[in-house]
Amino acid sequence: MRDMTIDDLHGEPGVEHWLTYADGFRRRIYVVDKEIPFPEGRLIVSQTDTAGVITTANQSFVAMSGFTADELIGQQHYILRHPDMPAVAFKDLWDTVSQGKKWTGYVKNLRKDGAYYWVFASVVPNIRNGRIVGYTSVRRKPSRTKVAECTALYRTLVGQS
């Protein structure tokens, strides 16, 4: 996964951040203070393997993320991680789904162009013959009330490990 560059921002002013993901990988990203509204009536759907590598992405995912399907497939799902999201949220996600349970939460996602979009996400383990073989994530349009609550909550959690 490459670092973001200023060219990704299409002329918008961006703020540089360095993200360190749970597996120790470090990446430079740029954040643009611009929200892209979740499209009405749509669902973003993707699947990953058990290591979080994206294996399928639907058209809504491609459109909202700003990446092409080829750029998404094979990448870690954390390519979407926005620095305003607390690491503890993703730890909770992985702890939950790896036990074979569903996880839900409100997530602020980073686009390829540095802008962001909020979703209500549900992640379910794909259990085949009693074994977890991957995960399906479905994202839908969130309530603005919940987004406001999570914005405030996540601000208090960012930086905690």
Binding site: L43, Q47, K102, F120, S122, N126, T136, V138, P142, S143
Partner: peptide, 15 residues
């Protein structure tokens, strides 16, 4: 079919 079932399971979650 399994994919569609997983999708339905994910959608039955209430926000």
């Amino acid at each position: 079919v399994e994919f569609m079932i997983d999708l339905m399971v994910a959608l039955t979650v209430t926000a």
